[in-house]
Design a protein around this nucleic acid. Sequence first.
DNA 1: AACTACTTTAGAGTAATTCTAAATTAATCC
DNA 2: GGATTAATTTAGAATTACTCTAAAGTAGTT
Lengths: 139, 139
Amino acid sequence: MRPYTQVLERLRSANLRPTRQRLALAKLLFDGGDRHITAEQLHGEAMTAGVRVSLATVYNTLHQFTDARLLREIVVDAGRSYFDTNTSEHHHFFYEDSGKLEDIPHDELHVSQVPSAPDGAVIKSVDVVIRVAAAQAAQ
Amino acid sequence: MRPYTQVLERLRSANLRPTRQRLALAKLLFDGGDRHITAEQLHGEAMTAGVRVSLATVYNTLHQFTDARLLREIVVDAGRSYFDTNTSEHHHFFYEDSGKLEDIPHDELHVSQVPSAPDGAVIKSVDVVIRVAAAQAAQ
DNA sequence: AACTACTTTAGAGTAATTCTAAATTAATCC
DNA sequence: GGATTAATTTAGAATTACTCTAAAGTAGTT
Ligand SMILES: [Mn+2]
Ligand SMILES: [Mn+2]
Ligand SMILES: [Zn+2]
Ligand SMILES: [Zn+2]
């Protein structure tokens, strides 16, 4: 919770003013380990922590942080996206029953032979999601 | 457009009555090559083809077909899911600019060392999406 | 043909997210 | 430090993609 300077620096280099809201959200996001969090959840945590910030700002901030590569966005379900504070290369288990995401460490899954992007395009990310469900629910 | 019998058989074995709507949608979906299509798009095609079917039925049918393994559902964006008529194992390029999906043939990308599912759980699918964007838009 | 279970549908409802335009705040300049 | 300007925040409305409900219609069975 000291390395505010780090976030501050990254905000500055992304041309994002370190406002009260952005700093508070950054603190909630980056203090204490890797997280997979939705906009609503983060908004809830802000409320609980007594940080007054609108849901629209939470969405704006999450997307700005994602653009600045402070976060990764992971889409699992139509209608739900998670923001991941772990921006290193790694993949995910998605538990269909609980809706939870779990990291798969980078060394435990390998995507090889990634084809190059079509001409004029550039690869933004390689996202692997392994969907799992309770054993009896499977076919 | 002859192999109605095929679809019919698969519907029967999934305990889905071959209704006018299901047969018409199956025809639109499976006649003519692999497709990545949204519910709204399929509904539009049905309208154009003069097939009267409600959007609710399109959604129901797509999900039933997915459960019967006639389709695969691919989630790319929060708030948009595609249904893929190609149910064989393969992965996708997603063009962030146009919103289009493109197949990556199975032999051009390999996921190795897939970790086993946690206890009591079973892997439903391994989904790889490579997000690409126009070159200048990339960081 | 009658019966029953499954299916379809219009329309209302929901959830997540985005938009708009007015109010606020941060950074810059004197 | 106060004025100026541009970025940011916000409430609330709007949008989008989908799901639900309950009533009407249809398929399969006898
Ligand atoms: Mn987004
Ligand atoms: Mn679905
Ligand atoms: Zn993660
Ligand atoms: Zn495909």
